[in-house]
């Protein structure tokens, strides 16, 4: 990993004595895209707010670009950060362009960027319309454009694709990809795990204020130890034969009412069954491997965390 852009160490935050973030340590480097996943109330947004210096951590240290967030020089660091909150209403009486110009002034950014950014998020036709006339998706795109103001080197995006249509989501991730190639570090909170699965370098999973797991998607899948599923469709009259072959290979077939056979296998054994299936390909109409999704992995880690907390 290159130089750390974000360094979080043993951070604790309590509201009215109740801990909402508990001993979180985390870091990420330049050009990394990190997904932050967790149930509602897991502490993700609170962690973002502490990273931005909006609220103070009760314990621990948060350092961005080498500067402590509560330090005197952090104000300067804020220029290099783009933030998109989960719920943002912006200003109904301003147009999209006026909104961006307002944020450009506050960020000491070049106002000439505003039109370019609006074009980048697909709002060039609506830039002079009042924000009150914008749809939810258009507001979200305007919020994203605001986050991109001043060419930020760190982007903190909280549920960034909320309310976006599929095309806008595609555009959003294209822009993220460009920013990543330019060296920006991106941390995004999302409930849409399938959406971010192939778009993040690492994933950090939070549950009940703790960081319960972090790593690449492959690492987290391995640690979770979830099985894969072979979904086998036998040709007419071959069901019994397929069932016997699967059994003789040491696996347990489950026949669905539609005749399709599902075989659950541990991840390391999935190739062994593939060899068995390949040997009877004449009897099969189709066979596909369903590996555990990021959602399965996330739920597994979360359940383990909740169970160990209850046990403690």
């Amino acid at each position: 990993m290159s130089a750390a852009v974000v360094e979080i160490k043993d951070v604790v935050k309590r509201y009215a004595g109740t801990p909402v973030v508990r001993g979180v340590s985390f870091s990420c480097g330049e050009g990394e895209v990190v997904g932050l996943a967790g149930h509602n109330g897991a502490g993700k947004s609170t962690l973002f707010k502490m990273m931005l210096g909006i609220i103070a951590a009760d314990e621990g240290d948060i350092v961005l670009f080498g500067e402590p967030v509560r330090g005197r020089r952090f104000r300067e660091v804020r220029r290099a950060i783009g933030y998109l909150p989960e719920h943002v209403a912006l200003y109904d009486n301003l147009s999209g362009l006026e909104t961006l110009r307002f944020f450009a002034r506050l960020k000491s950014a070049d106002p000439a960027q505003c039109k370019t950014l609006l074009k980048r998020v697909g709002l060039e036709q609506s830039m002079h319309r009042a924000v009150r006339e914008y749809s939810k998706g258009m507001r979200q795109r305007l919020g994203f454009a605001q986050a991109l103001m001043g060419e930020p080197r760190l982007l903190l995006l909280d549920e960034p694709t909320n309310g976006l249509d599929p095309e806008a989501i595609h555009t959003f991730y294209d822009v993220l990809q460009q920013l990543r190639q330019e060296g920006a570090t991106i941390i995004l909170c999302s409930h849409l795990l399938a959406e971010i699965q192939t778009r993040v370098d690492r994933l950090a999973i939070m549950a009940s204020g703790r960081l319960v797991a972090q790593g690449t998607v492959a690492e987290l899948t391995d640690v979770a130890g979830l099985p894969a599923r072979w979904i086998v469709t036998p040709k007419d009259g071959a069901h019994e034969w397929v069932r016997n072959v699967v059994l003789s290979a040491g696996f347990v077939p489950m026949q669905r009412p539609d005749g399709v056979v599902e075989v659950t296998v541990a991840m390391p054994d999935r190739m062994a069954l593939l060899h068995a299936l390949a040997g009877m390909s004449d009897a099969l109409a189709a066979y596909t491997l369903a590996e555990p999704t990021l959602e399965d992995v996330f739920l597994r880690h979360q359940r383990v965390a909740v169970a160990s907390e209850r046990a403690a």
């Binding site: 210096g53 909006i54 804020r78 933030y83 943002v88 200003y91 506050l106």
Partner: peptide
């Protein structure tokens, strides 16, 4: 309540 305050406080404004 509108969520704008957090956004403003994330900017280089005291």
């Amino acid at each position: 309540e509108r969520g704008v305050l957090d956004l403003l406080l994330s900017l280089p404004v005291t």
